[in-house]
Design a protein around this nucleic acid. Structure first.
Lengths: 112, 112
DNA sequence: CTCCATATGTAGGCTCACAAAGTATTGTGA
DNA sequence: TCACAATACTTTGTGAGCCTACATATGGAG
């Protein structure tokens, strides 16, 4: 999967991964990987800076925890984050509908 | 529509726009705009360089024509272009399925 | 004691679509 | 005649954004 494909859609995926319950960065990566059947396996260098950016933007909030001797930073959606996610879903729906329509298979010649 | 959304998907759209019949750059832009109900209105500075790149890559071939006093460059898919388009469709299917699944609406609580 | 999974982080670079500007012709409306 | 829109193509520079590579630290398995 070429990396550029993700451009512009990362925020939507991160927000969606945090919608159900608060998660830490590593768990977000897992959630996206398993939730996409392995298709999307995002590197930490992509996810962590993006989470920081989303927090600076006020769309998510973080709290530090220590679980089993390991430091974790749990993120959860803010109200603004929920709103942004809804917006991203709209945008994705329109974008994917447009691309799917344009990539639409050529008419299958009727057999017989 | 944020520009970055398109990243990585442009080639697929251009190849698809040329699949049915040869078209010149301006017509490709029209095809994509109308075929997406106006959602995708690509600037010339995006499309023309991309067509040049696809030609250099051997995925499309061009021929100059003069129609009504105006110079046109008609592009058509090569065999490699058809193959690349098929590949792009596979990739899009997997990518869009993954994103759609991950953005999947939270379960709507059964009403009543 | 080594290796892997877990867990977080930064710096630097590269790709790629876009904005902006320019060239040229035809058609149209005032 | 003049101005302007639509058609048609091109190039330069730039900025956004994700990735590669690297660094750090703990816990458990062998």
């Amino acid at each position: 999967m070429r990396p550029e494909l993700l451009k512009g859609h990362l925020d939507a995926l991160l927000l969606a991964a945090l919608e159900d319950e608060p998660r830490h960065g590593y768990a977000v990566i897992e959630t996206l990987r398993t939730g996409s059947d392995g298709t999307l396996d995002l590197p930490t260098g992509t996810v962590y800076p993006a989470l920081h950016r989303l927090e600076r933007a006020g769309l998510i909030a973080s709290r530090w925890h220590t679980v089993g001797g390991r430091r974790r930073r749990d993120y959860q959606l803010t109200a603004a984050g929920h709103a942004a996610l809804a917006q991203h879903r709209d945008t994705w729906d329109r974008f994917s509908a447009a691309v799917t329509a344009l990539l639409g298979r050529p008419v299958t010649p009727p057999t017989g």
